[in-house]
Nucleic acid binder design. Sequence first.
DNA 1: AGTCGTAACTCGTCAGGACAAGTGACGTCA
DNA 2: TGACGTCACTTGTCCTGACGAGTTACGACT
Lengths: 260, 260
Amino acid sequence: MAEIQRPGALYQQVAAAIREAILSGEFEPGAPLPSEAQLIERYKVSRPTVRNAIAALRAEGLIEVKHGKGSFVRSSGLPVLTVERRVSLSGADQFTTADGETWKIVDGPSVYRTQTTAATGSLLQLGEREEVFGCDRTLLHQATGARALHRTLIPFATADQVPGLADSPDAEPEAIYGMLANAGHELWWHETVRARMPLPDERSALHLPDATPVLHTTRTTHRLDRQALILEELCLGADRAQLGYRITADEDGNARTATA
Amino acid sequence: MAEIQRPGALYQQVAAAIREAILSGEFEPGAPLPSEAQLIERYKVSRPTVRNAIAALRAEGLIEVKHGKGSFVRSSGLPVLTVERRVSLSGADQFTTADGETWKIVDGPSVYRTQTTAATGSLLQLGEREEVFGCDRTLLHQATGARALHRTLIPFATADQVPGLADSPDAEPEAIYGMLANAGHELWWHETVRARMPLPDERSALHLPDATPVLHTTRTTHRLDRQALILEELCLGADRAQLGYRITADEDGNARTATA
DNA sequence: AGTCGTAACTCGTCAGGACAAGTGACGTCA
DNA sequence: TGACGTCACTTGTCCTGACGAGTTACGACT
């Protein structure tokens, strides 16, 4: 670096210089950056410094590196799928999310028996190590390439109460909602949304690039008396997908309003 | 590494070994890991290899490194704030999110005039470079330490139509909803949730540790005829906060259901 | 023409060394 | 007793050098 060193470490100055070059339009989205050798020449630094700078830009999600090919400005304009999180009791056949587009099940459904953890048990208003059915699927949204992992957890107590459920724990969510409704339950749902970095196996299952978090939702199905019936988890890569909620205020315009 | 080398690179084997040691309980959450020098001794590798392994675990969010002190297993049991995303028209004074806990405004509100971008213009059903009011706040949830950035965008057309709004674009969201309702509008909202890595300035403003994504929500306030009135953006660190939605099915149990 | 091997590029990995910078404990000195 | 400087520890930064591995294009051989 021949320039004045203002912020801090050398590699941060190099990273800042490259970042500016990208944002100023010198390198367009999708275009290749100079190779490491060229950056060494350009900024008069050693290779570890260049690689450190590149690593910082990768962690920011600004660039993407392909072994044997080079570094590229990540194109931010991927087709984004909005997964509308609403509920239909129609009991549709396909694994759709009510946006008209279909998901393809590329793995599963695989049913197994397991036990609740502290977290899942709490959400289901059960203790730890209670017996539940589990059902996992890996989904691919064909129009956009978005991928997701879906898991359904059904407590034995719920399966026993609802006709047909114990025989088909691999039914799709809205079909299950239909069974619960037919069993006489009035239903509502609560969903929490977290963002986190994917575990290594999630990274590969969802084909996630570097520095890409996942949206992790947990949806509990409740009766009107707040009894939790089933639990669903949906984990989807944040590079191609976002969630959508519709929110309305209650008629009385009071604090207990909401819905989406 | 004296052991058999299965997966791939040396540093990945070291990372896997440390990861196993953590998950097996050899190092408890919050406890310090062996120093780099000790890891070099333990696995018989060079310092770059050890540092590379540590960098991988950092990117996974599994450990946390403090300059001059050492590496520590990140304690996953932070108090998690669930931000319930619902709407009240009560026009409350404080910047609360209806969960009874209060946010403290540590920066702002600062009002300015700006222009729509392609993204925000599209959400507001306007073109690019349309004039809008902007209002930014930095929030701190005192009970949990969660931080958030909030932005309100109000098109001039909306401010002109609604009594009082042009004079106080820095009003808090639910106060603005109240103004809109008083102006005779029936309101509903649509919210999208994305996860992404924070920009450098967001990282420092939100005091985010390594490998921590942000939850980025955009909420548009609509009239019944789908006309968009205002736009809000909320950006909160995913280490201490999650979002909560309540979902109900329509009475007719049809496809157009939802709400949360 | 088609196939295949090689060569020249790219980034990935690993070694060893040196010094800077932050932290905490200990001992010295006022 | 109290304040402060030093020292031993930690991680951060930066260098040089070397080889492995993936990619691509070119040219020779069939």
